[in-house]
Amino acid sequence: MTVWNFETAAFNGLENYKLFFTDPAMSTSVPHTLLYAFATSGLKVVLAFFIAIFLTGSIRTKSFIRSAVFFPNLVSTMAVGLAFAYMMHPTKGLLNVVIQSLGGKAVDFLGDPKIALWSIILTDVWKGLSISVVIYIAGIQSIDQSYYEAASIDGANWWQQITNVTLPLVAPAQNSIIILSLIGGLRTFDLIWAMTGGGPGFATDVLASVIYKQYAAGFYGLSTAGNVVMLILISVIAFPLQHFLDKREEALR
């Protein structure tokens, strides 16, 4: 690696940013990043809630299921990405073998620009669900049982108890999940890098992968410009969202 040197760097105004936003190889990474962050975060928030409800219920296999759900978290993102890339192989991958044996047509999960990003999003949800589940379980377990007793005396059924007791009281845990998973999604890099490297074309390039590509190619100015764009993007999303969630949490009390 060449040693980067501040002293010889010349000021070239906003040239880097102009290039960043006009070159489709880089500018498309912004909508991709947004889609990735909101889709993974939304899916995790919803799915993890129902899994947590299920695992705090009366079933006897919950410790087995909880451990199994946590397993993907123990494997590195890089390893998960490589394993899923092979399971999504267009002809011989496990998923396509199953689809074809059920009479469907093989799907090119990572080679089709239209669905490649979604394939990665679903892999991310598979891997990252466990942390959200654990936070939800902790939130649900700290709810006082007397609320449920009171609700059931008032004649609330199972579903009403979930929407009127569990959901509002689990709000602090939920807010942590929303913020943590959204920011994680906006910063994502390893999974994209392991599964597609940003391809096909630039169909799955996100901000962090563009930053790395420019860095590896020696375009340090562009790389840092991407870094600043990411910082601004996270700031304009995360701070208002945090503020809104705090307000909502207070209103629920």
Partner: peptide
């Protein structure tokens, strides 16, 4: 710190 991403090149420059 939970929200702001690490900026890579400035960090490398500082470490150097």
């Amino acid at each position: 710190g939970l929200m702001i991403p690490a900026s890579i090149l400035p960090t490398i420059h500082m470490l150097q």
